[in-house]
């Protein structure tokens, strides 16, 4: 067990019933000020509501604060995650995952550039060819998630539609990327070859 860190003044106050209210008020003011700067279009109460929810979450997680940053910075990271989750949910409300599972997998039949003949071009189409075959071996869930991510769908929203969670979707996509990468490596393409092919 690690030694408990020397306590932060914010943590001390928030844990002390005689000082908690004052500390919460001071923290709320700072959170609201920061949130209003970014979510100005969210309506007057948006920042206030998020700050309120964030304070509850911050108190729940306070023992996880390890003092690696200033306390208000850490607190704001929690508030921003709550706020962006809400904004995203609203923004992607009408987007369904079905469109990313179109039964065609991730077809890679992109037009090869019109400039013919260059060695880079040949390497690029060979990489795409390999990639296309490797993608066919991904599971349906992996293919759908990868396509959704490539279409700008946040992993959190994919999770909301698949009774999953954000970390699990990230892992699903990571597993897919790992498979594709090792397949391409087996075919003789290094990470540098890959980045070079799209440069």
């Amino acid at each position: 067990m690690p030694e408990p860190m020397t306590s932060d003044p914010w943590v001390e106050k928030l844990k002390d019933p005689t000082q908690q209210e004052e500390a919460l008020t001071a923290l709320r003011v700072r959170l609201v000020r920061g949130l209003k700067k970014v979510f100005s279009s969210g309506g007057e109460s948006f920042a206030e509501d998020i700050a309120q929810d964030a304070l509850i979450r911050i108190l729940e997680k306070i023992d996880q604060f390890e003092g690696r940053s200033q306390f208000p910075t850490w607190a704001m990271s929690i508030a921003v995650r709550l706020a962006t989750s809400q904004v995203r949910r609203k923004h992607f409300k009408d987007v369904s995952l079905e469109q990313f599972a179109d039964g065609e997998g991730l077809k890679l039949d992109v037009a090869v550039d019109t400039l013919p003949g260059a060695a880079e071009q040949i390497e690029q189409s060979s990489i795409y060819q390999n990639l296309s075959e490797l993608i066919d071996d991904l599971s349906d869930r992996q293919q759908t998630a990868v396509r959704a991510v490539l279409s700008g769908m946040p992993v959190e929203e994919i999770a909301n539609r698949t009774a999953s969670n954000r970390n699990a979707v990230y892992k699903l996509v990571h597993d897919a990327r790992t498979k594709l990468k090792s397949g391409l490596e087996a075919a003789g393409y290094s990470a540098e070859d890959l980045t070079g092919s799209i440069a």
């Binding site: 077809k107 992109v110 037009a111 954000r166 990327r177 790992t178 391409l184 890959l194």
Partner: peptide, 27 residues
């Protein structure tokens, strides 16, 4: 629907930058 050229580039980039020990969103 095939991937757009932009999406293929993003995918190749994502694949190239894959490492075994990536942290997740909570991390």
């Amino acid at each position: 629907m095939p991937l757009s050229k932009q999406q293929v580039s993003s995918l190749v980039q994502l694949v190239a930058s894959t490492t075994p020990d990536e942290i997740d969103c909570d991390g």
